[in-house]
Amino acid sequence: MSRVAAFVFRRKGGKGWHWTDIVTWVWLVGGLFIMFGPAVWLVGSSLKTPAALAEFPPTILPYVTQKVSVEGFDKPFDLYEVTLDDGSKATLAEVRRIGIVSQMVDPKAPGEIIKVNIAQRTPVREMSFATENYTEPFTHFDFFRYLWNSVFVTVVATLITLVVNSMAAFALSKYEFRGRTAAMLVILATLMVPLSVIMVPLYSIVSALGLFNSLWGVILPTVATPTGVFILRQYMLTIPDELVDAARMDKASEWQIYWRIILPLTAPALAVLAIFSVVWRWNDFLWPLIVLSRKELYTLQVGLSIYSGELNVQWHFILAMTVVTMIPVVLVFIFLQRFITTGIAGTGLK
């Protein structure tokens, strides 16, 4: 214990508690709850039955009232812990409730009906995971369809992004040609044109190309990312030009130089871009919302937001689907977090 305490209460310099030490610990421990808490609560809630979700105050863990089937009755009844009038305790099943009086039977001796004031009974609860929250959306809704759409958009958009951006970055880093600066400026200038500014005309262009209500209409406008070109170009600039010269002397064609020399050497930057592209495309919301109006084309994000905006929100399904939507990003976070954070610190991109 004392070791743990020594670790927890370790202080900088060991000169006694400075107010900044206290702030630090409050901030970090508070952060632990605020940053992870909501997601944990979401996962916990997603395993509760609709009845448990409607309860207030809610329970931390998913509890349901234990059911028991009683001889002579078709339906199983809720089981209660009851304090009888004589002060003794019994575990009884509730057959029906009239006002504040509950009619109960002993499951072991189902013959006799016992009337109990509802204030004298507390439900017998057991932990139960409502896994049907997860399985039902797959069968009853188009959830599987949405999942597939999201995966398709993410994978295809990322592949095209990598190829197209790396080709452009190669041209902009390893060739001297007229208009290179202009091309670079055009690409940088597009940083100033976010989707929210051009969504109206972009919609008409996508429609004119016949891409409205098509996953390609979601994919294509996103693949020529200025940031992608930018980080790949910055990385390629660090590859010595002498390698390109050497390859030219080695009779390599320009295409070969691109894919046999430059691409393999740009792998770390490509990996960063790939991860970012996956996260961006998986999370995209506004543009798919505009382009996709047919239900069977929704991505997860669009489907989720549409369902959660309905009048009778089926929270138990929404929560479970949210968890599923979150899973790939959480996996990316767990395994590639260090990679991403260094990438951001190095390039300032998001």
Binding site: M35, W41, L42, N283, F285, S305, T322, F333, R338
Partner: peptide, 23 residues
């Protein structure tokens, strides 16, 4: 600790919205 504060950044806006709507 750094990763902890970074965690929500990767979540999709829809997921973020729904988590907090629920809370």
């Amino acid at each position: 600790w750094r990763a902890m504060f970074f965690f929500p950044v990767l979540l999709s806006p829809v997921v973020v919205g729904l988590i907090w709507k629920w809370i």
